[in-house]
C-alpha cells in the first residue's frame, strides 16, 4: 500500500483542550527571534500541514498564535519560530525550562501543495515571514520531482536578521532550486544583494501560466510582492499569501481575526489573492 503523504495524514484533533509540551531546545536565530523545539508530554504524535499555526500558552501570561516552522514529517519534535514582541512571546522563549508550554492546534488551512504539483512554485518571504514557509520548502524539496522549477526569494532587514542561516546556505547551493537572498542594509561582511525583496525579481523570469506563488511577510512587503508577481504575468488565483490578524481563540469564535468577510483563523491564514483583492492593501480593514 502506498504510504500516506504528510498532507493526507494531518488529523482532526480536539483543539479546544490544551496539550502540554516540554521545551527541548531553544535556538537563537537572530537577536530577537528564537526557534523552540517542543516535545509532547503526552507522548502522542502531532501532525500538521505546512502553513498552519498553533496557539501557544505561557503559564499565567497568555496565549499567542505562532506558525509551525518545522518539518511536517517530524511528529514528535515540533518547531516554532518566535519573535519576541510582547509579554507572552517573551515568556515563551525565556522560560528556559518551564514545566510545560500549552499548545492548541493546528489551526488554519495550509499552502496549496497538492494542487501545485506539476507546476513551478515561487516562494517569497520577508523577515519572520519565512517561518510558516519553511515547512512548505521542506515538503517541496522532499518531493522535488513532483514540482517544476522552484524559486525562493528572501529578504530581511540586515544580515543579522536572516533566519535559518545554515539552511539558507544549503538552499543557495542546491542545483534544484533558485534561491536569492537580500537585505535592506548590509554590514561589513555582507557580500550579497542589497535592497528590499522585490528587487530580486530582476533575477528571475517566471512562466505566468504555470507558476504558483506563496508569499508571507509584513503586509506592505506582500503588497509590493503581489505587484511584482502581477508584473511577471501571474494572475490573482495563482498568488497565495498568509495573513496576520489578532487572534484569541483560533477557532472562529472570538471574532478578532476578521478580515473582510473572512476569519483569518478558520478561512485562512492563507488566501489566494482573488479571494481577498477587494480588501487586501486597504487601510484599516
Amino acid at each position: 500500500m502506498k504510504e500516506k503523504s504528510t498532507l493526507e495524514t494531518a488529523q482532526e484533533v480536539e483543539v479546544e483542550v490544551m496539550r502540554k509540551f516540554s521545551v527541548e531546545e531553544v535556538f537563537k536565530e537572530t537577536p530577537d527571534t528564537y526557534t523552540l523545539l517542543l516535545k509532547p508530554l503526552d507522548k502522542k504524535d502531532y501532525s500538521f500541514v505546512p502553513g498552519q499555526f498553533n496557539m501557544l500558552y505561557a503559564f499565567g501570561v497568555g496565549e499567542v498564535p505562532i506558525s509551525l516552522s518545522g518539518d511536517p514529517d517530524e511528529k514528535y519534535l515540533i518547531a516554532h519560530t518566535i519573535r519576541v514582541v510582547g509579554a507572552v512571546t517573551n515568556a515563551l522563549v525565556n522560560a528556559r525550562k518551564p514545566k510545560f508550554i500549552g499548545l492548541r492546534g493546528p489551526f488554519g488551512n495550509g499552502w496549496p501543495l497538492e494542487k501545485t504539483k506539476g507546476k513551478d512554485v515561487i516562494i517569497v518571504a520577508g523577515g519572520i515571514g519565512l517561518a510558516p514557509l519553511r515547512p512548505a520548502i521542506y515538503y517541496i524539496l522532499k518531493h522535488r520531482k513532483e514540482y517544476g522549477r522552484f524559486f525562493f526569494l528572501y529578504g530581511a532587514r540586515t544580515p543579522n536578521d536572516l533566519l535559518y542561516k545554515k539552511e539558507l546556505k544549503e538552499w543557495k547551493s542546491r542545483f534544484d532550486m533558485d534561491a536569492f537572498i537580500t537585505v535592506d542594509a548590509g554590514d561589513e561582511k555582507w557580500t550579497g544583494n542589497i535592497g528590499v525583496v522585490t528587487t530580486l525579481f530582476k533575477h528571475i523570469k517566471l512562466d505566468p501560466n504555470n507558476t504558483y506563488a506563496f508569499v508571507c511577510g509584513p503586509e506592505i512587503m506582500m503588497k509590493f510582492t503581489v505587484l511584482e508577481l502581477r508584473n511577471q504575468g501571474l494572475t490573482d488565483d495563482k498568488i497565495y499569501i498568509s495573513m496576520e490578524r489578532n487572534m484569541k481563540c483560533g477557532m472562529g469564535l472570538c471574532g478578532r481575526c476578521q478580515f473582510g468577510p473572512y476569519f483569518v483563523c478558520k478561512n485562512g491564514p492563507i488566501f489566494s489573492m482573488d479571494q481577498i483583492n477587494r480588501f487586501f492593501g486597504r487601510r484599516e480593514v
Binding site: F59, G60, V61, G62, E63, K248, C249, L253, C254, G255, R256
Partner: peptide, 13 residues
C-alpha cells in the same frame, strides 16, 4: 459575539 481572554495567575504563581 466577539470575545477576548484574560489570563492571570495566583500571587504564589
Amino acid at each position: 459575539f466577539c470575545s477576548s481572554v484574560f489570563d492571570s495567575s495566583s500571587l504564589s504563581m
